[in-house]
């Protein structure tokens, strides 16, 4: 069994975060990971580093400053024209070379379409272990104990990479809390050349077509989400969810049963096979609270559930429960919030 760390791998030190950025912004998941990396590094007594790769159009220096503010001590920068826009080949080479040269013990990436593409490639190239979609990261002894849900969230397991380095893990956006920003923090920069030219790279990025509606992208970062479930019975009744959301300036979420019925877009699905969210307020109407839904929203600060069945599983993890008919409760709740907020909003405006 692979449980003993060979002598030559004991030199691997420090916690790294791959910093993902796109069209002028760092993906928040990278800062969420930076917060976790800081905690792990403090436990281990080592430093935190961010990895930034990009082309001439990317302001890597600005991102590095942000990285320090969120907890990094150092940033490794790889700048090269071939790194403009994500492609697997050059990013895999850049990250693999950095790891082999500077030898971190832990490497964290966001479980996004970019992070998963890159993490799987880098782990295979390095021949090390990679734990996917972790919901908790801890240090056990000197090793990373990464906990993740499996079988749609019905079970959790803790996975460790004991005999290989680095120990790699991905985490989905919004699973970890955003750390506090401290702009007085600073750090240093280490630059490395990629050593690749465009003609070395087979895959060409011909175009990038941004999504027309940015709405759905906001679901993961919304402060308030109103979610409707199959208990609403019809697409017509689902509009009650939209009305409450509008009054609260909230986003609309849905269960898989609802997106499969076609009452709303699939992008609004919350859960294991949809988005992970952690709003301040999550109102669920006609939602049973199946484990696959729960794992996507249980970190919400305040969960309200409206359900006719007093024994619905959602009441086991909601903070406030209303046993009642959603078709009756939602319009009244909407009116109650409207009345209350109308006074305040007018004064503020």
């Amino acid at each position: 069994r692979n449980t003993e760390l060979p002598e030559h791998l004991k030199a691997y030190k420090g916690v790294w975060v791959f910093i993902e950025h796109d069209r002028g912004h760092v993906h928040s998941v990278s800062w969420e990971l930076m917060g976790e990396a800081r905690k792990l590094a403090d436990t281990l007594g080592v430093t935190v580093s961010g990895v930034l790769m990009g082309g001439p159009g990317d302001d890597l220096d600005r991102y590095a400053k942000e990285a320090y503010a969120y907890g990094a001590d150092r940033c490794y920068l790889v700048r090269d024209p071939v790194l403009q826009g994500y492609r697997n080949e050059p990013f895999t080479k850049g990250l693999t070379d950095l790891v082999n040269t500077y030898q971190p013990e832990i490497l964290l990436l966001g479980a996004t379409t970019m992070g998963r593409d890159l993490a799987g490639s880098v782990a295979t190239t390095l021949g090390t272990g990679l734990t996917a979609d972790c919901t908790e990261l801890r240090i056990d002894g000197r090793a990373l104990a990464a906990t993740r849900p499996t079988f749609g969230g019905s079970l959790l397991c803790t996975i460790m990479t004991l005999a290989y380095r680095p120990q790699m893990a991905t985490v989905r956006p919004r699973v970890m809390a955003m750390p506090r920003r401290d702009d007085t923090r600073s750090g240093d920069i280490v630059e490395m050349a990629l050593g690749m030219v465009e003609t070395d790279i087979v895959t060409k990025l011909l175009d990038f077509i941004p999504d027309a509606s940015r709405n759905t992208v906001n679901l993961a970062y919304a402060d308030i989400i109103v979610t409707g479930g199959k208990g609403l019975k019809t697409a017509e009744n689902f509009k009650l969810v939209w009305e409450l959301a509008r009054v609260l300036g909230a986003e609309v979420g849905a269960t898989r049963a609802v997106t499969q019925a076609g009452w709303t877009e699939t992008d609004r699905q919350v859960g294991q096979t949809g988005k992970t969210v952690r709003p301040k307020l999550y109102i669920a109407a006609g939602v049973s609270g199946a484990i696959q839904h729960r794992v996507g929203m249980e970190s919400s600060d305040c969960i309200v559930a409206i359900n006719t069945d007093p024994n619905a599983p959602i009441f086991d993890f909601a903070h406030h429960g209303i046993v009642g008919n959603a078709m009756q409760v939602l319009p009244v709740l909407t009116q109650t919030f409207r009345n209350h907020l109308a006074k305040r909003v007018r004064i503020a405006a």
Binding site: S154, C157, I159, R294, F317, A318, I322
Partner: peptide, 22 residues
Amino acid sequence: PTVVSKVFGPTPRATKAEMQVV
């Protein structure tokens, strides 16, 4: 390289929802 060190069920929340019945 990965070693599964523990398998367990999700922990139930300590307190149940504060309930109101319509």
